[in-house]
């Protein structure tokens, strides 16, 4: 029940009657079920789960960054299990080649022809673990598939199935044996989610759950699928219908454009960032059972959308500033449309 319906003088009902007609009850129920499944195994990480769901609804890819051992991979694997679609996992290593990811042509002696053998990227949810352990050559092989959801091999285009979502994890770039992702690839991720260490209470809860837990594989198999590929596509269609007022569109554009003129930033965000902010804000509004986007949604998602798309100037980096600091400053200085 919407809070406005509790209004005594009927103003809430009047406004709701005029508001865009949207029914997100199916989406709400599905999201709640997914969260319940995840909570059985994952402690905390509420923001991570919310943003992963927003990305799936907004047709975006997600980069999850955090130190080892904070359930980045487990969360991504569990989420993939809750959706009844194809799932594959690729462990990126320094010697991984593009053909190991995309696929390669194999000679077929019977017909004396080459046949394309699909690589592990041909799936619906692809978990790329430790993406920054592979060199730039292998990382660059993901450019086309992440943006156009297809690959081109020997002049032939191979389309991915729908939905197609890449969930990648990485350790912070300061870690040993890692390669910085190219800007062009970072731009293809809708969100970069920073995962922090759990709090003391959460750590205790994790220990409690794992004290008598079953084996990891058995644990994964217990997770029940909640959505099918068809359901996901229908929900995406519904999210597309969320209303965005012209003032909110201008607000999104202002936030992104300001990253290009900020003196603390060497590189600003691209128009792809504006689009990502728009589509993800629509998905977040739908998750909150609203048929329209508010500046609040935009502000909440801006750091996750922008932080990997901007580069600090060397001076600011030396001062210890982070992209989040600059994004926060931009948000504070930009007037909220009202």
């Amino acid at each position: 029940m919407n809070e406005l319906e509790k209004d005594e003088n009927g103003a809430g009902e009047a406004v709701l009657a005029l508001a865009p007609k949207t029914d997100f009850s199916a989406l709400q129920a599905a999201v709640q079920q997914i969260k319940d499944e995840l909570r059985k195994r994952i402690v905390g990480q509420e923001q991570l789960v919310d943003l992963l769901l927003v990305a799936i609804l907004a047709d975006g890819h997600v980069l999850i960054e955090g130190v080892p051992g904070i359930a980045k991979t487990l969360t991504a694997k569990l989420l993939a299990r809750t959706i009844d679609v194809g799932f594959s996992r690729i462990q990126f290593t320094p010697d991984l080649m593009p053909s190991d990811v995309l696929g390669t042509s194999v000679f077929h002696p019977g017909s004396a022809t080459f046949q394309f053998k699909e690589g592990p990227i041909f799936s619906n949810i692809v978990l790329i673990d430790e993406i920054n352990r592979a060199p730039a050559k292998t990382q660059a092989s993901l450019f086309e598939v992440m943006e156009e959801q297809q690959i081109t091999h020997d002049g032939v285009e191979y389309a991915m199935g729908e939905p197609f979502v890449v969930l990648a994890t990485q350790n912070p770039i300061e870690q040993e044996g890692t390669y910085r992702l190219p800007e062009a690839q970072l731009d293809r991720f809708m969100f970069k989610i920073l995962v922090e260490y759990p709090s003391l209470e959460e750590e205790v809860a994790i220990l409690g759950i794992h004290h008598q837990r079953p084996a990891v594989q058995q644990e994964l198999e217990e997770v029940q699928p909640v959505l099918t590929a068809q359901n996901v596509m229908e929900l995406r269609q519904q999210v597309q219908g969320v209303h965005v007022d012209a003032k909110v569109l201008e607000y999104i554009a202002q936030l992104v454009v300001q990253t290009r003129a900020h003196k603390a930033l060497y590189l600003g965000a691209s128009p792809r960032a504006s689009l990502a902010l728009l589509t993800s804000a629509k998905a977040l509004a739908a998750l909150r059972n609203r048929g329209f986007v508010t500046p609040e949604d935009v502000q909440e998602l801006a750091p996750a959308v922008l932080r990997h798309r901007v580069l600090l100037t060397p001076e600011k980096e030396m001062e210890g500033a982070t992209p989040d600091d600059v994004i926060k400053q931009i948000i504070q200085k930009t007037e909220v449309p009202r």
């Binding site: 809430g12 009047a14 406004v15 005029l18 508001a19 865009p20 003032k247 909110v248 329209f292």
Partner: peptide, 22 residues
């Protein structure tokens, strides 16, 4: 605040009767 957001960001076209209620 909820009323304002529905009217202003939701794009609801208010008539006079609804306006008086809000």
């Amino acid at each position: 605040t909820g009323l304002f957001e529905y009217v202003w960001y939701g794009g609801s076209a208010l008539d006079e009767a609804h306006f008086q209620t809000v």
